[in-house]
Design a protein around this nucleic acid. Structure first.
Lengths: 236, 236
DNA sequence: TTGCAATGGATCGTATACAATTTAACCGGA
DNA sequence: TCCGGTTAAATTGTATACGATCCATTGCAA
């Protein structure tokens, strides 16, 4: 009963070992239990999941294709540490893709879908008011799931996968560069978007979506922190 | 001297073995030397490249993440055989993404870029008039490279990767469902798009791009061929 | 002839073993 | 004390080994 994660993970076990591990690690990254830059050594991962390095390695490779882990040759795998430039590109991609996706979703949306979206929103709001790490994590997840669900509704599996990647990487960026503690500042905007879709104001919905993304991005501090680990760090 | 592949493979060897193999196979798929559905057994791939199954397997896994090969549990890897529905989604994704990408590219394009694009176009046209398989393959590649180059110009590495995937998968779809032997029917359209960009007619460029994609898609026969392996196959 | 169970071969899934590379520790000399 | 180089430990890259699964053939019985 920990979270939806556990149930999801048990699932049907149709996935080959490496995929389970990949999913587990991805979830940990997206929920920010693993910080950017953390080393993920193959042996450690293997031991942690009681499998051989072979599977651990496969899982890490998979995550590297999603941009969540960066593997450096002969050095190992690390939780991705997106540069400011990368961060900009991620959000640029989202601005590019999400309005179009929203239009496609709106064209196919059913009342049931709207109900599901609203329910997700409610859950999101409920978690916002709670305290504790687990609630915070679930909230992060729910906030991303909103965007993901739109992709699902659009009915395009390829775009869905792409959005999954973008949302996951966004989480990393926010973990790194987010300023406001309340990561969910844009919660109410989700609701407005649904309303706009429901009343068939498509252009307005897109507009809201763009604003929403801009809003998230505005909360970031993307200045080059060139580690400044040298003298600057101690100069007043 | 066999083909560009060999030279590319030698390269700088900065890539780990599996990546070289992945690239080689991908190229073979995109250039349609490997047909959809072809079995790619790990041992065969390994022997072919004189590496162990480990690396062959890694390469095939990588390709499966790009959607170019499908690995079926306990059955092996096959060159992807996109369903008509998948094909539609691929082109839907391109229609969704490419206009926006074009706008971003137009905002950053330099005279040098335009020169490169035109050069690519020339090469494409030159190959069109030639005979022979190798020319045909190079032409296929060049035609895709046009779209790819726009993504490069846009400066967004993430979108670039995504477009690489889409273009590669498009090649598979065309191989499967394309009708006209002249796969490059839309060659002239590339030129028009460049001209529109050059003269800053952005809306028109996007329009042309959409038409271009629709044009490619119109050449496909996406009717469900439900194998019709039954009686229909033998009825006159 | 048709259907089904048993058997053998091929292929995949995973673990382990060894070689190559990096990283950290150590140590003598300036 | 500080520095460069040498060595040892740790980690990754790749190959091999073995158990498990699937597929095709075979043989037997209905």
């Amino acid at each position: 009963m920990k979270s939806a994660a556990t149930a999801q993970q048990a699932e049907e076990s149709a996935e080959t070992g490496a995929q389970q591990i990949r999913d587990a690690i991805r979830e940990a990254i997206v929920e920010r239990r693993l910080s950017p830059g953390t080393k993920l050594s193959e042996s450690d991962v293997g031991n942690l999941f009681n499998v051989s390095r072979t599977l651990a390695r496969a899982a890490l490779q998979a995550l590297s294709y999603e941009g969540l882990v960066s593997v450096e040759k002969n050095r190992g795998a690390f939780v991705a540490y997106p540069s400011p430039e990368e961060a900009r590109q991620i959000f640029s991609a989202r601005r590019l893709v999400e309005p179009g996706l929203l239009r496609e979703a709106a064209a196919r949306i059913t009342p049931d879908d709207i109900r599901d979206l609203r329910e997700l929103l409610l859950e999101e709001g409920r978690l916002m008011s709670e305290r504790g790490q687990t609630a915070r994590r679930a909230e992060i997840k729910a906030s991303g799931d909103f965007h993901l669900m739109l992709a699902v509704i659009s009915g395009n599996a390829i775009m869905q996968r792409f959005m999954e990647e973008l949302v996951a990487r966004s989480s990393l960026v926010i973990a790194l560069y987010g300023q406001s503690t309340a990561s969910s500042c844009g919660h109410s905007e989700h609701g407005e978007i649904i309303s706009a879709i429901e009343s068939n104001e498509l252009d307005r919905a897109c507009e809201l979506m763009l604003h929403h993304i801009a809003h998230i991005e505005a909360d970031l501090d993307l200045r080059e922190r060139k580690s400044l680990g040298l003298k600057e760090a101690f100069e007043l």
